[in-house]
């Protein structure tokens, strides 16, 4: 792939990095990243990947923009309320960088559509909100053989890890299965500091870029835990679990399935179902 003069100028701060160079930039332009969830985590990831010149960005989300999303979902503007999140986010990505092809999957990822969508991409970013969706993304990446970046956020803390199926520990190595429904709390005391989504989503984007470039060390076999109040990053090193029900020696999960959605047990009031 030959870069045009405009591209050489646009990506000059990448190209002057010896670890990237023109060749690396060409890899990014040929790269295909799927972002599942165009919310808090997916927004900064999509914007940075578009700016970086990742050639194909897929956005999968079935939601529309809600006023309460705007505190952290920075790909969406006030005027986007009511629009499909994938359309709103795609517009911002294209405005940043016309080199980027944005592919829209205006649907929630489910067991029956996940593999067909995932196989079109090189790397997946999990920007989903619910435990059921996070386990589905983990399982689908395993069965599709796609590396992916996990992140979760809550209150003032975030976590992130990268998984290369078949080679590194997976999400289920650490978190075996979704917590039982009776362990799931009401929503009223959750919440999240908006900037946390930016920090963790940007870490996921960095992993995706590193993966496409083939540089550095990915966040594998490590759970990175960020505490915004203490302003500390901590990492928990873990090993692949030989007894893992997904990636272990004799797995009990041998096909993709939907985990039962975990309902909030809000006693009253409005309960947000899609907070990412």
């Amino acid at each position: 792939m030959n870069l045009t003069e405009r591209q050489i100028e646009r990506y000059s701060r990448h190209i002057i990095l010896p670890e990237v160079g023109g060749k690396g930039q060409a890899k990014l332009l040929a790269g295909r990243i799927l972002i599942v969830g165009a919310g808090g985590l997916g927004s900064p990831a999509a914007l940075y990947l578009a700016a970086a010149g990742v050639g194909t960005i897929g956005l999968a989300d079935g939601d529309v923009v809600d006023l309460s999303n705007l505190q952290r979902q920075i790909a969406h503007a006030t005027s986007d309320i009511g629009r499909a999140k994938v359309e709103s986010a795609a517009e911002k990505c294209r405005a940043i960088n016309p080199d980027v092809t944005v592919r829209l999957h205006p649907e929630h990822i489910r067991a029956e559509n996940a593999l067909a969508i995932f196989k079109e991409y090189d790397f997946v970013i999990d920007g989903t909100d619910s435990f059921a969706a996070k386990f589905l993304v983990a399982d689908a990446c395993h069965f599709a053989g796609k590396p992916y970046a996990h992140a979760g956020i809550l209150r003032f803390e975030g976590q992130a890890m990268t998984v290369i199926p078949g080679r590194t520990g997976c999400y289920r190595c650490l978190f075996h299965e979704p917590p039982p429904p009776n362990a799931v709390p009401s929503c009223s005391q959750a919440g999240v500091l908006g900037v946390l989504a930016g920090i963790m989503g940007t870490i996921q984007a960095a992993e995706a870029v590193k993966y496409l470039l083939g540089i550095g060390e990915l966040l594998t076999n490590r759970l990175l835990v960020f505490d915004a109040l203490k302003m500390t990053f901590r990492q928990v090193v873990f090993k692949r679990n030989a007894a893992c029900q997904l990636c272990g020696g004799s797995p009990s999960i041998t096909a993709l399935r939907d985990e039962a959605p975990i309902a909030c047990v809000c006693a009253g009031g409005r309960c947000e179902t899609a907070v990412t």
């Binding site: 435990f131 809550l154 709390p185």
Partner: peptide, 12 residues
Amino acid sequence: MYFMGGGMRGGR
């Protein structure tokens, strides 16, 4: 290590 979703329904 705590379950973390997207700001709801998880954590400590």
